[in-house]
Computed example of a mutant assay.
Amino acid sequence: MIIAAEISNTATVTPQSPLSIALRVLLPDDAIAFGVPLATLGRWRIGGPADVVVTPPDVATLRGVLAAIAQAGVPHVIVGDGSNLLYDDAGFRGVVVRIGRAFGNFVIDADGIVEAGAGLWVPSFVRKVIAGGMAGATHAIGIPGTLGGLVTMNGGSQRRGIGENVVSADVIARDGTLLRILHADLGYAYRSSTLQASGGTVVSARLRFQPGDRHALRREAIAILAARRAKFPRVRANCGSVFVSDPALYNLIGPPGLAIERAGLKGASVGGAQMSPDHANFIVNNGGARSRDVLELIALARRRVQELTGIAMIAEVRHLAPDGTMRPAHEIADMLAIETTQGTS
């Protein structure tokens, strides 16, 4: 069992707490760790300590873990690779439940329906779909993250979302109940679904794709990856696109990155965070960036683009507060901007 040398004095879950004892019974020794820096779990490399991080090895264990957390009344958050999360500098006073590669199954049934696990790395998922001679997933080939996050967020690129292919999602409710939710009840819209508010945990999804030519699809995937490598930052830590592409903004100027550039903010920095010189809709960590630095850049970009266009950009990145509240990062950024203004007035 891994226990960090220092755990926050304000920790809700300590190694000796009743919930920790229950989790030890449910989990293998190497699947539970205390005082884990969230900076090690997210692609931004930002964030303070989490009380405890658990990585269940299978669905049955995950159900037991979630039931134990619910019974204890302790905050928890579900993460995959943390590619769209901004962890707070103060960390998180609760349980981080990681959906890892153990949830990486992929099968195609006799009816051509794909069933895939939530922990499957999205580029691997897309390659498997292509290898199966199916079209419709190629747009997601370059998206960092796991399938569970993609299904929850209706992720995708080229203004497409994976929700158009989802037949159903197997979800564990907060109390540990396993549910199968059909497409009609998932409420898919652009970069959103009902899963974001339900608090449930996607463990697998069933998806339907159209037949396609493997060779043509592979060529398309290679072209998409080449285009992403040419324009997106690859060396410095980042979470991918920060702002959602809004149709009104797109029609007026173009995508968020171009709007931010037109507002004069490409390359702008706050602390260790910077609007990427490669693509302005990416915020990179140049070393030692804090969550506050990122939030200040988000607030600045929103304000300048709104002054330029009259349109307030929406962040697709989510901010995790120390109490477990998960909100779009622009909402926290706006509150921070108000507090800063009031403090200087």
Rank of each mutant, 00 (worst) to 15 (best):
Asn286Gln: 13
Ile253His: 01
Leu41Glu: 12
Thr61Pro: 13
Val305Phe: 08
Arg159Phe: 15
Asp51Tyr: 01
Ala137Phe: 09
Gly145Asn: 08
His319Val: 10
Gly145Cys: 06
Ser193Met: 03
His215Gly: 11
Val294Cys: 08
Tyr190Gly: 07
Gly254Asp: 04
Ile172Pro: 06
Leu308Thr: 03
Ala221Gln: 03
Ser198Ile: 09
Ala33Phe: 03
Arg219Val: 14
Gln71Gly: 09
Asn84Pro: 12
Arg236Gln: 15
Val244Pro: 10
Ile172Val: 14
Leu150Val: 08
Leu62Cys: 11
Arg302Ala: 13
Trp44Met: 12
Arg292Pro: 10
Pro49Lys: 00
Thr344Gln: 12
Phe92Gly: 03
Arg43Pro: 10
Tyr250Pro: 14
Leu179Phe: 04
Asn9Met: 13
His183Val: 12
Gly91Tyr: 00
Ile311Ala: 08
Val242Tyr: 04
Ala230Val: 06
Gly133Trp: 06
Asn154Leu: 13
Val97Ser: 00
Arg214Ile: 14
Asn285Cys: 07
Asp213Leu: 10
Arg24Gln: 11
Cys239Asn: 06
Gln16Thr: 07
Gly117Arg: 00
Trp44Val: 09
Arg98Val: 12
Pro328Glu: 03
Ala226Trp: 13
Phe209Thr: 02
Ile21Ala: 14
Ala221Met: 07
Ile113Trp: 01
Pro123His: 06
Val122Asn: 03
Pro144Ser: 10
Val126Thr: 05
Arg327Tyr: 09
Lys231Cys: 13
Arg45Asn: 06
Leu147Asp: 01
Cys239Ala: 15
Ser204Leu: 03
Pro328Phe: 07
Ile130Asp: 02
Thr55His: 02
Ala226Pro: 09
Gly149Asn: 02
Asn9Phe: 11
Ser241Trp: 06
Thr340Asp: 15
Ala301Phe: 14
Asn165Arg: 00
Gly199Asp: 02
Gly35Cys: 08
Asp30Gln: 08
Ser345Gln: 10
Ala337Val: 07
Arg63Lys: 15
Asn105Met: 12
Thr201Lys: 04
Ala301Tyr: 06
Arg208Pro: 01
Trp44Arg: 02
Gly264Ser: 01
Arg127Trp: 13
Gly47Ile: 00
Val95Ala: 03
Leu66Asn: 00
Ala110Ser: 14
Leu86Lys: 02
Thr55Phe: 04
Pro123Cys: 12
Tyr87Asp: 08
Ala33Ile: 04
Arg262Ser: 11
Asn84Thr: 06
Ala280Val: 11
Gly287Thr: 09
Lys266Phe: 15
Gly254Ala: 06
Ala197Glu: 15
Val74Leu: 12
Gly142Ser: 11
Glu115Thr: 02
Val305Arg: 02
Met153Tyr: 05
Ala184Asp: 14
Leu217Lys: 02
Leu19Thr: 08
